[in-house]
Nucleic acid binder design. Structure first.
Ligand SMILES: [Mn+2]
Ligand SMILES: [Mn+2]
Ligand SMILES: [Zn+2]
Ligand SMILES: [Zn+2]
Lengths: 127, 127
DNA sequence: AAATTAAAGCAACTGTGTTGCGATATAATA
DNA sequence: TATTATATCGCAACACAGTTGCTTTAATTT
């Protein structure tokens, strides 16, 4: 484990995430790359990249899967890049938000992981 | 709009949510009621109950749909019962958490709605 | 260059949820 | 109560995101 080949698919995806500020919907990726690779390949490559801590995934309001580049030196055994995600209802873009959300103490509960998904209007659409 | 018939399906569902503290997975509901009604009926009745502000829905980490009873006098045109949801990785139950989560200010963004999904170990499993 | 093994392609499949439509039940009205 | 109107139901077919098994291909090791 830990070996990830620099295959054609991986290079294409890495390049894509490198030049994309917002998150990318898995389905869109499949569509966008349909002439270059099979959808199975897309999904499996995304899996690998996520395992390596290069990208991270989350689920939108409608249950669809999003991917975005990790920016905080995540590794294969630790994703230390936890943050809310924001969907703009105007431009439909989904972004990682570099802020901390504090969860109030919940008596007798052990918190393991928190996913925050915010909808609203982004800065770009707000002028 | 606003008219919801007290049909057999609705009665069964209302009764079910009344006696259930945790949230219910839509798929489980379909399975559990498969001898009493068609799955289409389940989904459509859930839709109606949600429209009426009697139950609310949210999406879990894996993209599956959950439903839970509203407890704060929600109406057909306003769901004023917004709260985090908590999934216990031991007992697998999903609960509504009656706490407030404060989202830090995000410059130039207008926040419309926030969904918080927490995983961990619940009070019941924690002793 | 040959051997090794991860990754790709393809087709078929899984599972959740949706849609169209004719049949039925509920509520309104006469 | 009988009649009419319409919301809801059941069924079958569908949509669609994501997965699996298996064979072939390509990347890395020797
Ligand atoms: Mn992110
Ligand atoms: Mn809830
Ligand atoms: Zn925007
Ligand atoms: Zn528990």
């Amino acid at each position: 484990m830990g070996i990830i080949r620099k295959t054609k698919a991986v290079k294409i995806l890495l390049d894509l995430f490198e030049n994309e500020f917002s998150a990318i919907l898995a389905v869109d990726l499949v569509e966008r790359l349909k002439n270059e690779m099979n959808k199975t390949t897309v999904y499996r490559a995304l899996d690998r990249l996520e395992d390596e801590g290069i990208i991270h995934s989350f689920v939108g309001k409608n249950g669809l899967k999003w991917y975005a580049k990790c920016k905080n030196n995540c590794t294969s055994d630790h994703h230390n890049d936890v943050h809310p995600h924001f969907e703009c209802k105007k431009c439909k873009k989904v972004m990682c938000l570099p802020v901390e959300v504090t969860i109030p103490n919940i008596p007798n509960h052990t918190i393991d992981n928190t996913a925050v998904f915010i909808t609203g209007i982004c800065d770009n659409c707000n002028d």
